[in-house]
Simulated assay, not measured.
Amino acid sequence: MALRRVGVVGCGLMGAGIAEVCARADLDVVVVESGAAAAAAGRARLETSLKRAEAKGKVADAAAVLDRVRLSTSLDDLADRDLVIEAIVEDTAAKLELFAKLDAVVCAPEALLASNTSSIPIMKLATATTRPTHVLGIHFFNPVPVLPLVELVPSLLTLDETTDRAAEFVGAVLGKHAILSKDRAGFVVNALLIPFILAAIRMLESGFAERDDIDAGLVRGAAHPQGPLALADLIGLDTTKAVAESLYEEFKEPLYAPPPLLARMVDAGLLGRKTGRGFYTY
């Protein structure tokens, strides 16, 4: 069964990006948001991104791509979807509640339910449904239209056929590069990346080195495209903290524990690019 009708729940930065790459692949996309205002903001985010892509020659007709996306405020509009990708806030309770609702709404027995979570165990989400064999993680990276990588994360109960269908969708349909990860906190990329970012934050917090020197050291000395503190701002400090907490909860290793400075910045609403201020001001 080809995955041609795609649903996305959430139209924030990640959800909008996922919807965009699906629409650019000529798929029929339904995006569900929590309310009319959020749906309007999501549509505006999509329109801005597609117009930018059109100006750069990456999209022939932004309006035609946007026409393949329908915004909704009702999960019932996902009933006929072949694949639904959850891209809501990184909160376990909220995701569990959503997966239970999606299980009841999505009609096709062979339809896949996927999460874009960057840290929450897929097994936990799968057991909120009556179809754990058809649940897996499909984790995109920000910005979704630009970065080519997707992590596929089957749980212990996910069928091989489910993973194969998802891999074909990611590779042959979306043109992304898929890597396979075990269902453990952080998966592949964040299990490597988050401790690296946390080490940079601790270095700044302790006064060992200044912000600009930390980032310049990795950019100019290790050929990184951007420094770890700038990267944390791009990811979002709240997301960085949430992933760190998930890693620490699972492994209890000190290197995964969020530094106090990170926690205080999140409490203050200094979340990085999304709020205009984090380690840098935007």
Results as ranks from 00 to 15, higher is better:
Val89Gln: 09
Arg264Phe: 09
Ala16Val: 06
Phe141Gly: 00
Leu3Val: 08
Ala209Trp: 08
Phe196Met: 15
Ser74Phe: 14
Pro132Met: 01
Ala268Ser: 14
Asp91Lys: 15
Asp26Pro: 00
Lys176Pro: 00
Glu250Asp: 06
Thr275Asp: 09
Val146Leu: 05
Ala39Gln: 09
Phe196Pro: 02
Val153Ala: 03
Ala178Asp: 04
Glu110Gly: 07
Glu54Arg: 04
Glu90Arg: 03
Ile122His: 02
Ser49Ala: 12
Glu47Arg: 14
Val144Thr: 03
Ile122Asp: 00
Glu245Thr: 12
Ala94Glu: 11
Asp26Val: 11
Ala232Asn: 09
Ala16Gly: 11
Tyr256Ser: 05
Ile85Ser: 02
Ser74Ile: 14
Gln226Ser: 12
Arg24Glu: 05
Ile214Ser: 03
Leu198Glu: 09
His177Thr: 14
Arg184Asn: 11
Thr239Trp: 00
Ala111Phe: 05
Arg277His: 15
Ala104Gln: 15
Ala79Met: 08
Asp213Gln: 11
His177Ser: 13
Ser115Arg: 03
Ala41Gly: 12
Thr117Lys: 07
Ala63Asp: 01
Thr92Glu: 09
Ile197Cys: 09
Gly17Leu: 06
Ala167Asp: 09
Leu112Val: 10
Val189His: 03
Arg5Gly: 05
Ala223Tyr: 09
Thr117Asp: 02
Val65Thr: 01
Phe169Cys: 08
Ala63Trp: 00
Glu249Arg: 13
Thr281Lys: 15
Glu86Cys: 01
Thr158Ile: 07
Leu247Trp: 05
Pro121Leu: 08
Ala200Glu: 07
Glu151Lys: 04
Glu90Tyr: 04
Val30Pro: 00
Lys182Met: 07
Ala2Tyr: 13
Lys252Asp: 09
Ile197Ser: 07
Gly269Asn: 13
Ala244Leu: 09
Thr275Leu: 11
Gly7Ser: 10
Leu271Glu: 10
Ser181Lys: 03
Ala93Gly: 06
Met203Gln: 14
Ala79Asn: 08
Arg5Ser: 12
Val31Leu: 08
His134Lys: 13
Pro121Ser: 11
Ala25Gly: 04
Val106Tyr: 03
His177Gly: 07
Ala64Arg: 00
Gly207Glu: 07
Ile85Glu: 01
Leu204Asp: 06
Val65Cys: 00
Arg184His: 14
Leu156Pro: 01
Ser119Met: 08
Ala25His: 03
Asn116Phe: 05
Val30Ala: 07
Val150Asn: 04
Pro132Gln: 02
Cys107Ser: 14
Asn190Glu: 06
Leu198Trp: 08
Gly227Ile: 07
Val21Pro: 00
Val6Ile: 14
Glu168Ala: 15
Pro143Tyr: 12
Leu50Ser: 01
Ala60Ser: 08
Leu234Val: 12
Leu156Glu: 14
Val135Gly: 00
Arg273Asp: 05
